[in-house]
Structures are given as structure tokens and as C-alpha cells.
Design a protein around this nucleic acid. Structure first.
Length: 547
RNA sequence: GGCUCCUUGGUCAAGCGGUUAAGACUCCGGCCUCUCACGCCGGCUACAGGGGUUCGAAUCCCCUAGGAGUCACCA
């Protein structure tokens, strides 16, 4: 076979040479040990936790080593392209504090290793595809969908391995004349790789997370170029990551099975393989079994979910870090206020089994992060969140900034600060009792008290209430009321001899509590009263006495 | 079915041939002179199973089982 002739037939248009591309995209001039990483999302308009998870690893790796982290849009499948998806990717990443050194932007590229959209790199791929044809490593295949399906059925029936290989690779040895005739006849074709691999051979591949892997060599004649001339993921990945000088390919473990294809391609093109880092899939408990987080069943997979619920981006990254690196929590315990960037992230400490997404743990991390966040900042975040998701509350909440900040601050000072807030939508509900517009009696008054008793408690409380008191003086008065009205001063005493009392002091304070905040559970009443102010406090109590 | 990865308590996990097998979250008790939180103290619960190698195995090897991924002109 005259490969030169075949190459000219397949690629009639003028193309740059491989040499030229090597010069256009030279080795990067970076400090020793700098890593170049990237994420390569496809623009489907859906961006999920896994994307962020991998992005975070890449970003940490490159930022810590003085390397480069870039964004490449993998839009080789025109069927799945969604308008505006690039914008979604960029803004989602930005929301979580992930910045790119170079790559695709909303309206073009930033960086000298582009284009960063695969759909714009067709000629580059063709140059190297042509190169493979020239060396006899690639050939056109005219097998259509039906033929391939028939082949598959036959393989299934015979319990053979699926795929295009060996005797099944019908187009492997077509003559030049046959090919030319078919092409002139307008028959569509794909370009396949001519694999010289053997299914009994093994390849060793080093993985940055998993160590040395031993895999079955690829023996399939996989597709390089689809019939529209656009490359498959496999081919585009190899060409791009070589030319963009990627040093570490961070991606999900679903790529492990096609890894032999990729290294085979790197090897036959004579290029140095990048260090692959295959991350574990995020799992979730579904009844008794674990399963992959699914787009349809699990809203928490979509990054949008965290925005809607009002989780702070820093909470999500903080949680992801605890899942990513086993020593992160330990580090955080020792450095409670240090910025997350100070943590030295390492691939060695990464787990290679599927991490379960644990919402309880995530909420705990969020509480912790929110506690470290200044009240002013929470105010800003909550306002920002409410403006988008609850405009009514936004008005109420932002009407008096100082008041709202005071409300947020309740219980957060001292040796044992409360961790009341988890996310912004929960914070809105939690804080709602501070505002006239959202305050309502949600819980029942204590069962030990009837309406008369409640009126009595409230009226006495109102009589003795003095906003000049400190907390101790205030509570002493509550005790007096409780004692006078026959309530045990210690809940234990009441528990032991319920017949001797009307209830315990907790019933008394809960009457006041429900009157004041509308619920039986709340932070310290005295502090809340201080925030509400004397007028509002008295008004609420007076109104409750009428119930 | 082929290929591949993974397997320490309910969950996340330390552990790299000798440990009373850490820690965190959850759950359950108890304590903190008002609830709820917070905090503190305590508790439940684990090396998937079976064979080797070794004086000694959670750790090394093999087999089995379970879970997961993948087998497209999708990424």
C-alpha cells in the first residue's frame, strides 16, 4: 500500500506539518516540578460536583507548584452542545473560587496554547491523523451502523469479545483502489487506528493516585476521526494534552477502561505520556447499597443545588477537601482560621475508593465554616442569596443592616459559640422570628400551662422586666416568677415529684420563649430580647398574653 | 460475558510486617444551676470470606464473594 497516496486521498487540503505544531506550541518554560493541569468539560450545560472535584485537584496541584491550570472545552459532539454552556462552566467555577490561568473564555481564548475549544482544532487533529495514515497506523473504515450492529450481535451470540479487531476489522486491509472507489462513490467513513496490540499483552501505566497499574493492552481498532472529520475524545485528548503540554491528566475513573487506548496513542506518536490521575467516583447511599451519584435522582450532584440552598462556596470546597485529602481535617483542627490555600495538598493522600457523599458531614463542615465567617460577611451572603431566591425576605432582611447583623451575631461569641447556621436558606428560616414580617407562633405553648397560667406568667414577667438588667439579674427574676407560681426551679425536682409542682422552670421560660420567638427551641432569650429591643419585646409578650 | 478498579465501624477515614486497630461525622447515654444548640465525658459498632508466605499479617501473594466502572462515529 502506498500510504502517501492514501494520505493525499484522505486529506486533500493543505495541512501544517507536525514539526510546525511542535514549534507553535513549544515546551512550556516553567520552574522545575511545575504541573500543568486542566479540566475538559463538555458543554452540555450541566456541571456537577465531579467536575468541581477534579477541577479542585488540578487547580491545587498547579497553584502549589507554580504551574498552569487551564480550561479546554471538549465540544467534539455537536449533538450535545448547549448554547451558553461555556458561560455556565466559567461562572460555576468562578463561584467556587476556581480561576483559570488560561483557556476558553466566554468570548474567545486566553493563552498561547489554544484554541481551547476542540471544535476549532480540526486542522491540528488532521495533521496528526494524516501522520498516522502516512505510517500505516490508521485507515479508513466504511462499515456503517447496521454492519457494526450485526457484527456485535454475532459476537454476542458467539460469546466473543465485542469490538472492531482481528478478523472483524473488515476494512483493515482494503486496497487503495477499493478505498478510492468508495470515496468517489461518496460513501461515508471513519478513520480507525490500526492497533498492533494483543489482548494477551499487558501495559504498565503509572497513575498519580493509584500507583502502577497493569492493564490489558488495547487490541481494538478504535475510531480516531468520526465521519464528519471531528476526532473522538481519545484522539483529541492525546493530541491536545501533548500540544498543550499537560503534565497531569486529572479525570474520573470512568476513563480507566480506555486508558490503554490513550497510552498506545501516546506511544505510537512518540510522545511522552502525562501522569494520569484517576479519581474515584462520588458515591451515595441508596437504601442498602452504594451507587454513583446520579443526575436524575440526586439534586446535590448539580452545582446549582448549592447555590440554591445557599451553601457558601467555601463550605463546598472545604468539604471536598476533607474528602480529597485524608489529612485535611487534622490540618484544619490545628489551623482553624488559616486560608484553605495554605494546606499542602498531595496526590499521595488521596483515596482511591469511591467516597460517599455524606450530607450530614457536609452540613457539619458548613456549620463550622459559617462559625468562622464574620457576621458582616454572612449578612452580605444572605442578602445576596435572598435577592435572588427570596425577594420578599430580602426586603425585610436588608431594611436594617445593623439589626440583621446583630441578629446573626446572637450566640456566636464566648467560649462556646453556637453553630446555628448551615446555609442561607436555612439561615433565613432560622432568623425569621427577628422580623415582624416573618415572625409567627410556630410551636405550641408548654402543655403544663393553660391560658390563665400563661397570662399570669407573661404579666408578671412584663411587670418585672427591666432592660437595664444584666443576664444574671434577668434570670433571677424569672426564677422568682417560677417559684411564686409553683414551678420547680430545677427540672429534675419536677421530674421526681411531678405532683408537687405545676411544672418546672423550663415551662415558664418556654412560655416566654414561644411568646417572643414563636418556637420552643431558640438561642438565649435575654440576648434575643436585647436585639429585638424593649418595645418589640413588650409588644410580642402583650400580644401573646391575649391568646 | 470480556476487561478493569475498589473492599478497615452506619459514613469518611488513619494504618505501609509487631498498635489496647487513631480521629471526624452520625447514633445512644450522662454532665453543663431555662429550651434547643454549643462544649465536655462515656458508649455501640470495623480489618468481606477462605487459603498461603512469615516467629508474627489489616498490612505481602493467590482464590472466592461483593460493589463499581467500561465495552459507541458520547464525553
Amino acid at each position: 500500500m502506498d500510504y502517501k497516496r492514501l494520505a493525499d486521498l484522505l486529506f486533500p487540503n493543505e495541512l501544517k506539518s507536525p514539526r510546525e505544531y511542535e514549534e507553535i506550541y513549544p515546551k512550556r518554560n516553567l520552574p522545575e516540578g511545575a504541573t500543568v493541569t486542566r479540566i475538559g468539560p463538555s458543554p452540555t450545560g450541566f456541571i456537577h460536583l465531579g467536575n468541581l472535584y477534579n477541577a479542585l485537584i488540578g487547580e491545587r496541584l498547579s497553584a502549589q507548584s507554580g504551574g498552569v491550570f487551564f480550561l479546554r472545552i471538549e465540544d467534539t459532539d455537536s449533538k450535545r452542545y448547549v448554547e451558553g454552556a461555556v458561560d455556565v462552566i466559567l461562572s460555576s467555577m468562578k463561584f467556587f473560587g476556581i480561576e483559570f490561568d488560561e483557556g476558553a473564555t466566554v468570548d474567545g481564548d486566553n493563552g498561547s496554547y489554544g484554541p481551547y475549544r476542540q471544535s476549532l482544532r480540526k486542522e491540528i487533529y488532521h495533521t496528526f491523523a494524516r501522520e498516522l495514515v502516512l505510517s500505516g497506523k490508521a485507515y479508513p473504515c466504511f462499515c456503517g451502523e447496521d454492519e457494526l450492529e450485526a457484527m456485535r450481535n454475532e459476537q454476542m451470540a458467539g460469546k466473543l469479545n465485542f469490538g472492531y479487531y482481528g478478523k472483524w476489522a473488515k476494512c483493515r486491509d482494503l486496497s487503495y483502489e477499493e478505498i478510492e472507489a468508495k470515496i468517489k462513490n461518496g460513501e461515508p467513513y471513519v478513520l480507525r487506528f490500526r492497533s498492533e496490540g494483543d489482548e494477551n499483552n499487558r501495559v504498565e501505566v503509572f497513575d498519580g493516585i493509584r500507583g502502577t497499574l497493569s492493564l490489558q493492552e488495547n487490541y481494538q481498532d478504535f475510531v480516531l476521526l468520526k465521519s464528519d472529520g471531528i476526532p473522538t475524545y481519545h484522539f483529541a485528548h492525546v493530541v491536545d494534552d501533548h500540544l498543550m503540554r499537560t503534565t497531569h491528566v486529572v479525570r474520573g475513573e470512568e476513563w480507566l477502561s480506555t486508558l490503554p487506548i490513550h497510552v498506545q496513542l501516546f506511544d505510537t506518536l512518540g510522545w511522552e505520556r502525562p501522569i494520569y490521575c484517576h479519581t474515584a467516583v462520588l458515591m451515595k447511599m441508596d437504601g442498602e447499597t452504594k451507587r454513583k451519584l446520579s443526575k436524575r435522582k440526586d439534586p446535590e450532584l448539580a452545582l446549582e443545588y448549592y447555590r440554591k440552598e445557599g451553601y457558601l462556596p467555601s463550605c463546598v470546597t472545604e468539604y471536598l477537601m476533607t474528602v480529597l485529602n485524608s489529612n485535611f481535617e487534622e490540618w484544619r483542627a490545628e489551623n482553624p482560621t488559616a486560608p484553605i490555600d495554605d494546606f499542602k495538598f498531595t496526590l499521595e493522600k488521596m483515596s482511591n475508593s469511591g467516597a460517599l457523599f455524606d450530607l450530614a458531614k457536609f452540613d457539619d463542615v458548613s456549620r463550622e465554616v459559617l462559625l468562622r465567617t464574620p457576621a458582616e460577611e454572612i449578612y452580605e451572603k444572605l442578602a445576596e442569596w435572598a435577592r435572588e431566591y427570596d425577594p420578599e425576605f430580602f426586603k425585610i432582611f436588608t431594611a436594617d443592616r445593623d439589626f440583621s447583623i446583630k441578629a446573626i451575631s446572637v450566640g456566636r461569641s464566648g467560649d462556646r459559640p453556637r453553630k446555628d447556621l448551615v446555609n442561607m436558606s436555612q439561615a433565613r428560616d432560622f432568623l425569621s422570628f427577628y422580623y415582624r414580617g416573618t415572625f409567627k407562633i410556630e410551636d405550641e405553648f408548654p402543655q403544663n400551662t393553660d391560658a390563665d397560667m400563661r397570662r399570669e406568667i407573661i404579666s408578671r414577667y412584663l411587670d418585672t422586666l427591666d432592660f437595664g438588667d444584666d443576664k444574671t439579674a434577668w434570670f433571677a427574676k424569672v426564677r422568682v416568677i417560677a417559684d411564686d407560681l409553683g414551678f420547680a426551679l430545677q427540672p429534675k425536682k419536677y421530674k421526681k415529684n411531678p405532683e408537687l409542682y405545676n411544672g418546672s422552670i423550663s415551662d415558664v421560660s418556654n412560655v416566654i420563649r414561644v411568646a417572643l420567638v414563636g418556637r420552643t427551641n431558640s438561642p438565649d432569650l435575654w440576648e434575643i430580647s436585647q436585639v429585638l429591643g424593649e418595645d418589640e419585646t413588650r409588644a410580642r409578650l402583650a400580644k401573646a398574653a391575649e391568646l
